[in-house]
């Protein structure tokens, strides 16, 4: 009997539980999507947006909105387990702690990805984004960006409930630690959006993209592995 399939099986069951709960309650996705819409509105009044702004500050606006929205979503990672001592039940069950982390982390990735895909059209509308195939690599950036946010976010979310800082703790930890990923996300998105400038060569994968996406992948892999290893120490009771 090898341990790997059982971890993965546990992860799938836990993930399914969270997805079903979300599907029935829509407690996280809808508020997050609405929040991104509001942040985009605020940015619109903070800066005079339009035309050239898309390439100047568009990627920054997009990722700032995503990161702030994700902080709210991450906050809820373990909130549902608080009721009826569900977390204690989970910990008492013969489930590997690592599987719990992976399930929660993958759940966060899916939620963030959902928010990003649902709000991209709004962003496109406000910034007059030209639709086109050149936007396809954005999905890779979204996926790896979400994985980066979720990797450390899920780990720290498990701590937040026990601090007197409560919901303050998560942003204080996540925001500075996320800087390397954020830089890569913004840079990669910038490269992709520039493909929409009329007269630009329509390469599907501009060469400059590789280094930023590589950095993002590195961040996601390093911190998912590290958080997965350290998660035991966070929830051991």
């Amino acid at each position: 009997m090898s341990a790997v399939p059982s971890t993965w099986a546990h992860t799938r069951i836990l993930l399914r539980k969270d997805l079903v709960a979300e599907w029935r309650t829509k407690e996280r996705l809808s508020p997050m999507v609405f929040f991104v819409l509001l942040v985009l509105l605020v940015f619109n009044f903070g800066f005079e947006l339009g035309g050239a702004a898309l390439w100047e500050i568009g990627p920054g606006v997009l990722w700032t909105s995503f990161v702030f929205a994700s902080l709210f979503g991450l906050q809820r990672t373990f909130a549902a387990e608080g009721a009826n001592d569900c977390l204690d039940g989970l910990l008492a069950a013969p489930v590997e702690r690592g599987a719990l982390y992976l399930a929660k982390m993958l759940g966060n990735v899916l939620f963030l990805l959902g928010v990003e895909l649902l709000t991209l059209p709004m962003f496109g509308l406000f910034f007059n984004l030209t639709p086109g195939l050149y936007l396809l690599p954005l999905f890779v950036v979204f996926l790896l960006g979400s994985a980066s946010v979720a990797s450390i976010g899920t780990l720290f979310a498990a701590m937040a409930g026990h601090s007197r800082l409560r919901e303050f703790l998560l942003p204080l930890l996540v925001l500075p630690m996320l800087i390397p990923a954020l830089i890569s996300c913004v840079a990669a998105t910038g490269v992709i959006l520039e493909g929409g400038i009329p007269g630009r060569g329509t390469e599907l994968w501009p060469a400059e993209l590789t280094v930023h996406v590589g950095m993002l992948g590195l961040f996601a892999v390093v911190f998912t592995t590290l958080a997965w290893m350290l998660f035991d120490f966070v929830i051991e009771e």
Partner: peptide, 28 residues
């Protein structure tokens, strides 16, 4: 004991992050 554990976890993640911060900012 719990806060000490949390702090240790943050201390490890923070240090691993330093080279990434350095590298990405150099790129930026």
């Amino acid at each position: 004991e719990r806060t000490q554990r949390f702090a240790a976890v943050v201390g490890i993640v923070a240090f691993v992050n330093v080279p990434l911060v350095h590298y990405s900012i150099n790129m930026w």
